[in-house]
């Protein structure tokens, strides 16, 4: 397993956000976490990337415990996080945003090559490379956030609601991008409220309800599950 989370619980102050969540993510897969607003999906990702600390439980990545590491160290282990709401740096240019993604890398040639391949993937970013990031549209900002995360050369990419607030045609483009990223061998954990999209992309899925793991299974099985259909697919 590339990533293993065991009985993880996170509190915000006295309020419990997730309780005893366990999940396993095999290398090369796309795994999704679906659930309603406030179910603990983002908190789970924040625990993985070190933004939230565990009250109990453990996380190991590539066989190494990472749950005590600070967020800025976890990137170096090979986990990049595209946070909820994109969180690009508004007053840096597009290119500067992308280069911050490679902050820990020392291979100058590799960084330049990855910057070029990022511009190949996202031609819009190349056109706007000298523009301040805040001047771009929501879809472009989402692509910038994804590009920035890829510049870290991650083994595992955490994506929090990449479809949020975007027009359907852009959502389709994001879905295609996620497939491309995965085809390059990068493992993806995708958090989505858009369950239809998420289950279509993922091989395995976890369903969170009010901080608890309610259901898990292969994505196509969950897609046909009566409870999931009623609660998340609206059919």
């Amino acid at each position: 397993m590339l990533l293993e989370m065991k009985d993880a619980s996170v509190n915000y102050g006295k309020v419990s956000a997730i309780r005893n969540i366990s999940m396993s993510v095999p290398e090369g897969s796309v795994v999704t976490i679906i659930g309603a607003n406030g179910a603990g999906k983002s908190t789970t990702l924040r625990a993985l990337s070190g933004l939230a600390s565990l009250r109990s439980g453990e996380i190991s990545f590539n066989g190494k415990r990472i749950d005590k590491l600070a967020a800025h160290r976890i990137v170096g282990e090979g986990i990049a996080h595209v946070p909820e709401g994109r969180r690009i740096f508004p007053d840096l240019t597009v290119e500067e945003n992308l280069r911050t993604g490679a902050f820990l890398r020392k291979d100058k040639k590799g960084i330049e090559a990855d910057l070029e391949s990022c511009f190949d993937h996202f031609p819009r970013l190349k056109e706007r490379r000298r523009q301040l990031a805040k001047t771009m549209s929501g879809g472009e900002q989402q692509m910038l956030a994804i590009g920035r995360a890829l510049m870290a050369k991650p083994k595992l990419l955490l994506m929090d609601e990449p479809s949020m607030g975007l027009a359907p045609i852009i959502v389709e483009e994001i879905a295609r991008i996620i497939e491309t990223i995965n085809a390059q061998g990068i493992t993806v954990i995708l958090v989505e409220q858009n369950a239809e999209l998420a289950l279509g992309l993922a091989t395995y899925a976890y369903v969170l309800e009010t901080g608890n793991l309610a259901l898990e299974g292969p994505a196509d099985e969950l897609h046909d599950n009566d409870h999931v259909r009623a609660a998340y697919l609206g059919v």
Binding site: H72, R73, V75, G76, P83, T100, F103, L104, R148, A149
Partner: peptide, 11 residues
Amino acid sequence: QDPEAAALQGI
């Protein structure tokens, strides 16, 4: 501009 997002880049 965003300390948390910066931490996610390894800063």
